[in-house]
């Protein structure tokens, strides 16, 4: 795992995968993709980084704890659901301003929640096992 080729390429691949995950997140409303799948891809990117470096390194690069990601993701998704209520529409209705709308906000929430929760498990398990 500690070969220099793997470690160097892991950093590059991680960045590419993160960009790809954002791409999937944004196209999710009309095409295959969406918050959950994009979140899982982002998690795989971080998992790769974790294997190349250490869990501490990943935690450092994340800046905020995975739990904070998960919590804020759920919060954003909840608020995206609440938003239409202020406009007199039922819970979780889609509001659109051009191409940007509350479903996108909801997807971003799911994206963050998936990254946070799965990464939380992954990092803790890795630390526990090693």
């Amino acid at each position: 795992m500690s070969s220099i080729i793997f470690r160097t390429s892991a950093h590059i691949v991680t960045v590419l995968m993160l960009v790809f995950s954002v791409y999937l997140l944004l196209r999710g409303h009309n095409n295959p993709g969406g918050g959950f799948i994009a979140g899982l891809i982002a998690v795989i990117a971080f998992a790769l980084l974790m294997l190349a470096e250490t869990t501490d390194y990943v935690r450092q690069r994340l800046v905020y704890s995975p739990a904070a990601f998960a919590g804020s993701g759920i919060l954003i998704a909840l608020l995206a659901g609440l938003l239409p209520l202020f406009f007199g529409q039922p819970f979780l209705s889609g509001l659109w301003w051009g191409k940007i709308g509350s479903p996108l906000l909801f997807d971003i929430g799911i994206y963050l929640a998936v990254i946070g929760s799965v990464l939380m498990v992954l990092l803790n398990v890795e630390e526990e096992l090693s």
């Binding site: 919590g71 759920i74 919060l75 909840l78 659901g81 609440l82 209520l85 007199g88 529409q89 039922p90 819970f91």
Partner: peptide
């Protein structure tokens, strides 16, 4: 629309 969602929404918000 508000009242029916709140019993789910408030606990989830509080939990977060």
């Amino acid at each position: 629309q508000w009242l029916l969602v709140m019993p789910i929404f408030i606990p989830l918000l509080t939990a977060t």
